[in-house]
Amino acid sequence: MVRILVIEDEIIIGRFIERHLRTNFDCEISVAVSAAEARAAMASFLPHLLLCDIQMEEELSGINLITELRRRYAFEVIYITSYQNRSIIEKAAATNPANYIIKPIDESQLFAGVQIVMSRLETDAQTGKAYLQSNTLFTEMELRILRLIREKKTTIAIAEDLHLSRFTIKNHRHTICRKLQLSDENNALLKWVVQNGNLLK
C-alpha cells in the first residue's frame, strides 16, 4: 500500500486532503503540521509520497525541508501552494517534485494532481525507503564496497581499487550479508544490491 505524508500547517486543510485522498486512493495517510512532525514521521512512516505546503511557518520552509529530507530518504513529492511566483516555482523545481498543485484546491484538482503520481508509484519500488547511511547499519568501508558491487566489480577488482587484500574484502562481504540477513553466497548480495542500489547514493 502506498504511504502518503501530508505536510500542511493548517490542520483543517490537512484533514480535508487526508479525507479526500482516503476516499479516492488505496493508501495509508499521515498528516504533519510542522517540520518537526514531518521529520519524525519520515523516520517511522517512510512515506512513498509527500504532499507538502511550501509556505509553512516561514517563507519557502517547505522547499528547504524537502531538500533536507531528500538527502536521507527516497520519495516523490507534490507541492501544494498558493504561490504562482515564477522564481519560487523554479526553486521548487530544483528539488525535482513529481507535481505542483496550486491553491485554492478542490477535490478534482487534488485527485488529478495525485493520480498521475500514484499510478507510477504503484509499479515503482524505489521510493518509501531511507538511504543507507554509514552511521546506521553499515560502516563507511562497507558502503564503499557495496557501491563497488553495484558497479558490477568482482571481489578482486574491489581489492585492487581499495588497495586491500581480497580476503579483507571477502570478510567485509560476509559481515554485510550477516547484517542484511542474506544467505552467505555471492549471488544473494549481488541481487540485493541490484534491487536496492539506489539507496546507496
Binding site: D9, E10, I11, I12, R15, V33
Partner: peptide
C-alpha cells in the same frame, strides 16, 4: 478531534 487537531497545530 477538531479541538485536538487545532491544539496540536498550536504545538
Amino acid at each position: 478531534p477538531l479541538i485536538r487537531d487545532l491544539t496540536r497545530q498550536m504545538n
